[in-house]
Every structure is written in C-alpha cells, then in structure tokens.
Design a protein around this nucleic acid. Structure first.
Lengths: 206, 206
DNA sequence: GTCTATATTAAGATAGAC
DNA sequence: GTCTATCTTAATATAGAC
C-alpha cells in the first residue's frame, strides 16, 4: 500500500525510536536497531556517527511530543480553569494512547541524565516557571471567587499530571495485576479522558 | 557512632541497592557497586556469583517494599472505604518519602522484564485479582448506599495510586520544572499525605 | 549505499598470590 | 577474605571490498 518506500536513513530512525523507547538508552542494542531497520550495524554507523547521536535525535523528538502540546494549552489565555483542565487532560491522555511508552521513556531517561531536561527544555523556548506561576494565579483567582476549594496551583497541577500520566508509566504493572488485555487497557484509558476531568473538577468545585 | 561495622557481604548489598535503584539493571556497573562498597570487583564476585544474582536479591527486597504494606491495608476488612483510602494514601506516600526512587525502579525494571512481576509476585502469597474484586465490591456497596458518586473500583484504585506514586516517579522532571530544592520537594510530598486523601474523598463523596 | 571482516573498548567474570 | 592480574565476552565502532 505504500507509494514510497521510506529511506534507509528514516527506517533507522524509526527503528531506533522503537528500540530506545522500549528499552531505554542503556539496555538498547545497536544490533537490535539495525535488525529492526532491516540493515546491519555498519550501515547504521554510516548514517549516524554513533549510538549517542541517534539517541539524541530520538530523545529530542520524544521530548517535544511529551511536553509541547501541553504547553500550548497551558499557555492559552482567555479560557476558564475548568476548560483548561479538560483540554489538558484530553490532550495528555490522547497523546499517551498514541504513544504508550512515551512518558516512561522520557521520565526514566531524564532521571538518569538530568541534564537532558535542561538541554532540550531550553530548545522548546518556554519558561515552565512562568507558566506555572500563571496557572497559580488563575487558580488563586478562582479560590477568591469561591468557585473552587482552596488548593495550591502546583499541587493541583501535579494531581492532573499524575492522573493522566501514571497509568501509562505503570502500564505493565497495572495490566498484569488487573489482568487486562491490550485492548481492555486501551478502553480503560480511553474512558479516563472523561473520568479524570470529572474526578478533578468534582474534587475542587465548591 | 556505629557499634558494629557492617560485614562486607552486607556492604555490597547496600551498595548494590543504591546503584541498582539509581541506575536500573542495564546502566548499573559492578565497578560502581564495588567502589560504593569500598572493595573491588573481584571480591564482589567472591560473595555473589554474578551481577544477576545481586540484582535479584535487591529486586526482591524492593519489590516487597513497594507492594507488601499496601496489600496489608488493602486486605484489612471491617474498615470503611474512606478510612481505607486514607490509610492507603498515607502508607504509600510515607513509604515513598523514605525510598524516593523505589517506585521508578520497580516499575521500569518490570517494564523491561515483565516476568519479574509474575515471579516475585507469586512469592508474596497474594492474589491481586481477588483483592481488587473485593475493593470493587466495597466501592459498589457505597455507590448503592448513595454515599459516593458512581465510579468503577479499578478506576478509583488507579486514581489513588497515580496521585500517590507519580510525583516520585517523575521527581526529576517535577523538581526541575518547579525549581524545587530537595527539601522543598520533600515538604511538598509531605503535604500530599493529607491533600491527596482530601482530593479523592472530595471527588467521590456525594 | 551496503556489506563482511576486523579493530577497539568496556564490562563482567575467573585464577591465583598473599 | 581481599587483592592484582588476566581472561572472556559482548557491544560499539571502523576499514575496506563491492
């Protein structure tokens, strides 16, 4: 069905994406990447100097996927707190359904190399601290209005992220313990788009 | 201040605990474990056959720490749903404050070697499926009584776990993005013992 | 551009002296 | 029990033929 075959260069990147995302940098093998791309190791080095070079390309992409869209919503002004929460939740869960290993990959690689966050974060051209303090302000305004119960903006933010992201990070544990097949797990996360928004809003609404 | 020096064997285990927990199996180096224990690699192999042997001992301990206490509360009968939630939250956050890397370690190692969960899970002598269905029943009973809003037990359970565990899994990301020092992060998680219970109960209570 | 063959490196594991 | 020295293995990276 494909009209154009992907170039070798691209096939290597795709393969690397899969392998690095599943295994992480340390456990990933260039042999496996080459195999997955249908070539041999030598050719991989012909296109990319070394393992680190490929990893950095992959990490940059995944890092953006993980953070970018979220920040867009986060930044958007003229939108109520509840509306913002709904959009964040929906965006986050939708992204993670599309890329189920994304969160675990980005988080564990950053945990092992914290400098990755600073390096790649700078490239995104956003200031998280500023965004968070804007969010804090919006939350505080709602509290003053008496529409929501008192809560620190950053704690609310952590709650939102936790409810969206954790199920994907812990998916192997959850799937096994709850005996969920791939498809059942997917349906469960699909439900959470609505469920998590409601859960949060029910909790803070007065 | 120490009355008795730890034996070499124990010092190796302690060192391995630190290194494996920080780095994960693949990125951990036996050299680093030996150094951390104040010995050399050869001696490490004198006490333990190989890297896998040590890892398995460590993983078993950490795995129990992560799951055991939780199940005890989970199992305990004659205790209201709200009370159960409060105890679970409190126990989980307290454990993770004591062992901040525990959750990320256990989850990522299971993600890479799913069989670890089955093997070690069996040793715990508990049946997660049974526990979860008991929990489901309790939740459904409360819904019927009209004391809480309708929610699937398993979704509620995932919410509880998410709110407790995620902040620790993602701590390097959260600390950097929110510019929290070690101490501030600790205080934030300490606050969450109360905050998370309230957040959940506010959300489900009618 | 792609491969086979080879070199290099680094990590894990063992032998043997003390 | 602990070390130094050495072996082995496996993974990354390069050279060179086609």
């Amino acid at each position: 069905m494909e009209l154009t075959e992907a170039s070798t260069e691209d096939r290597i990147l795709e393969a690397a994406m899969k392998v690095f995302t599943r295994k992480g940098f340390a456990a990933a093998r260039t042999e496996e990447i080459a195999k997955e791309a249908g070539i041999n190791r030598a050719l991989l080095h012909y296109y990319y100097r070394d393992k680190h070079t490929i990893f950095n390309l992959i990490f940059e992409t995944r890092f953006k996927e993980f953070f970018k869209g979220l920040f867009v919503i986060f930044e958007s002004d003229n939108i109520s707190l509840f509306e913002k929460i709904e959009r964040m939740v929906n965006h986050e869960i939708t992204t993670l359904i599309k890329h189920p290993h994304l969160a675990r990959f980005v988080i564990t690689e950053i945990a092992q190399q914290p400098e990755l966050l600073l390096e790649h974060g700078a490239k995104l051209g956003i200031n998280p601290r500023l965004l968070i303090s804007e969010f804090e302000k919006q939350v505080n305004a709602e509290i003053k209005l008496g529409t929501i119960r008192p809560i620190q903006g950053r704690q609310l933010l952590i709650n939102i992220m936790s409810l969206c992201i954790y199920p994907f990070v812990a998916s192997p544990v959850i799937q096994t313990m709850m005996s969920l097949q791939e498809k059942e797990f997917y349906e469960m996360t699909e439900q959470r788009k609505r469920l998590v928004s409601d859960f949060i809003i029910n909790s803070i609404k007065k």
